[in-house]
């Protein structure tokens, strides 16, 4: 419960953060709210030698209407996502999912960018933004680039970000008029989901993201494809785990997770269609 020794530097801007991470190399890590990284460090599962703190870069904290999408700064705290009037109007699924992250203390410190860059498949926001067809903006020494959420999550805690790239913005499409649902199944309110489902439907389109159903957040494309070709909700939900590869842990066997995913996807789609 005491992390290994490390050095700490604080960045004043995204550019400085990227420059510092380049300077310190592979054993350096960005730290934002610290709610994913610090527990790993306390258990000594992560032992970075340098932490580059981006927590004071205030111009990375914003939620803006950008025309066809909403732009969210990577340093925006979960609590600000949860309570944003802009998101309530245009992307209520994301605001609602943010309200299920951890507990109030976690939501006041943890950031949406930190959660997505950490890419824990058991976290709520990676799968939710994946279901929404979000785009992530990464900034590196050579400038910025956009990465589609579907291309971002590459393996267990592995993303498309280069070591010297900083996730700076999350862009979610406006979803006004869509039906939506977020189903989080867990034993204690503060825990990660045993299985979670983020789903939306609008005009024959749909998106379904699965939490904790594999080594990465999962986009349940088979469900959406089935719905597009006229399947009933119950039929489509049976395909919930087609893209998943769930693990075994103290809370659930893979078989139980597959079962839960089917039940929760069905319930989510029913709610999103109501």
């Amino acid at each position: 419960m005491i992390p290994a020794a490390f050095d700490y530097v604080r960045a004043g801007s995204a550019e400085e953060a990227i420059s510092l991470i380049g300077e310190y190399g592979e054993d350096a890590k960005f730290i934002a709210g610290g709610h994913s990284l610090l527990p790993l460090m306390k258990l000594r599962l992560a032992q970075p030698t340098v932490l580059v703190d981006i927590g004071r870069i205030s111009d990375l904290s914003y939620i803006r209407d950008a025309g066809d999408h909403i732009a969210i700064g990577a340093m925006t705290r979960h609590m600000d996502v949860e309570t944003s009037p802009v998101l309530a109007e245009h992307a209520p699924l994301l605001a609602h999912a943010a309200s299920h992250v951890g507990d109030p203390q976690v939501r006041h410190r943890g950031t949406i960018g930190g959660s997505i860059a950490h890419s824990d498949s058991a976290s709520d926001l990676p799968a939710t933004t994946l279901a929404m067809g979000a785009t992530y903006v990464a900034q590196g020494p050579g400038g910025t680039r956009e990465i589609a959420a579907a291309d971002f999550f590459q393996g267990f805690l592995q993303t498309a970000l280069a070591p010297d790239e900083l996730l700076t913005e999350i862009r979610v499409p406006k979803m006004g008029g869509a039906g939506w649902s977020f189903q989080k199944f867990n034993r204690r309110a503060q825990d990660w989901a045993i299985v979670g489902v983020a789903a939306w439907r609008r005009n024959g389109e749909s998106g379904v993201g699965l939490v904790n159903m594999g080594s990465t957040p999962i986009l349940a494309t088979s469900v959406s494809a089935a719905l597009s070709s006229g399947a009933s909700i119950a039929e489509a939900a049976e395909l919930a785990a087609a893209e998943a590869d769930p693990q075994n842990d103290l809370n659930a066997s893979p078989e139980y997770r597959v079962h839960l995913a089917k039940v929760l996807v069905r319930r989510a789609l029913e709610q999103a269609s109501a």
């Binding site: 507990d103 204690r188 309110a189 103290l250």
Partner: peptide
Amino acid sequence: ALFEEAVFDEDGNPKTSTLAEYLVPAASD
């Protein structure tokens, strides 16, 4: 009744050594 159990594997290794695994309910639960 609902939450807590000290779990060990067959080699006697504890599997519930932190409060993330050993589920003490909070007020919300």
